[in-house]
């Protein structure tokens, strides 16, 4: 009786077959608000409603693993989709199924400071200065925080005479300055911009530009010398789309992300389009800086995850409470 009640309830809750569920990361809220109606306006997307779920990326991946029936995931790092693949919900070679390693767009990490830059922050090195208060995402719970960590690490490695000890020492100083280690990107934004805490916020370029728009005259961007390329990979979840019979729609949705209209929407939301032509058109929008990739610089995501972010890794060794 109990189970029957449950199934009755879930019939009520089950969406019609023409609905897709896009499980996404925290600061992608605005962009998909624009992308979804644009998709519905195309022939392939006619009659398809895309529902959104946003939260910290690792939390979202965990929810999908636990049974959140996402048709597609649109994430901000491949590592979270790899985690989902590990549970067998989608093919391990998911990244090869769509162009640009399944990333229709990418971003990078910049710094955001208070208007007038009172603490004179120009590059990653300034984050280690005593008395600077930093707001970042927890690298254990969000890819946003991982990029911050890796970008600072990339800068430290470029310094003359750098070795593991100097790099660790630098990172230790940076994370000793951390004022708030938020769960997701939007929480960090809220802490810095709305609550007025901290001297520097480190987050995605798209978020930095958006905060500048939302709080004009109160904050300003700082473009560091180097940062990490942050892929925004997407994938359909094989097991879920098979069960729901939405494979074709899910694939069409993700392919739409590569078309010119969608790429334009990414650019308008300050996310870098993978389409070179669209990117060139908006070149003036985006910051100019040296981008390194996780693959070249850190041996790929699984190595980076293991070395730096898993329990007992570098981050755990470095991060000590004051």
């Amino acid at each position: 009786m109990f189970i029957r009640t449950l199934s009755l309830l879930s019939i009520l809750a089950v969406a019609s077959a023409a609905d897709l569920l896009n499980v996404s990361y925290d600061v992608a809220r605005e962009v998909y608000k624009d992308v979804n109606p644009a998709f519905a306006a195309t022939p392939a997307g006619a009659g398809i409603t895309v529902k959104q779920s946003h939260d910290g990326s690792a939390k979202q991946a965990q929810a999908v693993i636990n049974g959140l029936s996402a048709d597609v995931v649109t994430m901000n790092s491949p590592s979270d989709i790899d985690q989902i693949a590990k549970s067998g919900l989608l093919a391990a070679d998911w990244a090869t199924r769509l162009p640009h390693r399944s990333s229709p767009s990418y971003s990078t990490h910049l710094l955001l400071v208070r208007a007038g830059n009172p603490k004179a922050i120009v590059d990653w090195g300034d984050l280690a200065k005593p008395g600077v208060q930093i707001v970042v995402v927890n690298p254990k719970t969000g890819a946003n925080g991982k990029y911050t960590y890796l970008a600072a690490l990339a800068w430290a490695r470029r310094q003359p005479g750098a070795n593991d000890d100097t790099v660790k020492d630098f990172l230790r100083k940076v994370y000793a300055n951390v004022l708030a280690l938020d769960k997701g990107g939007r929480g960090a934004t809220s802490t810095f911009a709305q609550r007025g805490l901290g001297d520097v916020l480190v987050t995605f370029e798209s978020e930095v530009f958006r905060i500048e728009q939302e709080f004009p005259g109160k904050v300003q961007r700082v473009v560091p010398s180097v940062s990490v390329k942050a892929d925004n990979p997407v994938a359909w979840i094989d097991r879920n789309v098979e069960r729901k019979g939405t494979a074709a729609q899910a694939k069409a949705y993700l392919e739409f992300l590569y078309t010119a209209p969608a790429q334009e929407i990414f650019a308008k939301n300050f996310i870098r389009p993978s389409d070179e032509a669209v990117l060139a058109k908006h070149a003036a929008t985006f910051a100019k800086l040296d981008l390194v990739t996780v693959e070249e610089q850190f041996g790929g995501w699984s190595v980076a995850q293991k070395t730096h972010f898993d329990d007992g890794g570098w981050f755990d060794q470095l991060y000590q409470p004051r």
Binding site: N138, V178, L179, A180, L181, D182, K183, G187, T191, L197, Y319, Q320, P321, R322
Partner: peptide, 9 residues
Amino acid sequence: FISGNLPMK
């Protein structure tokens, strides 16, 4: 909402 969720703090 109010705590800031700083690990260890």
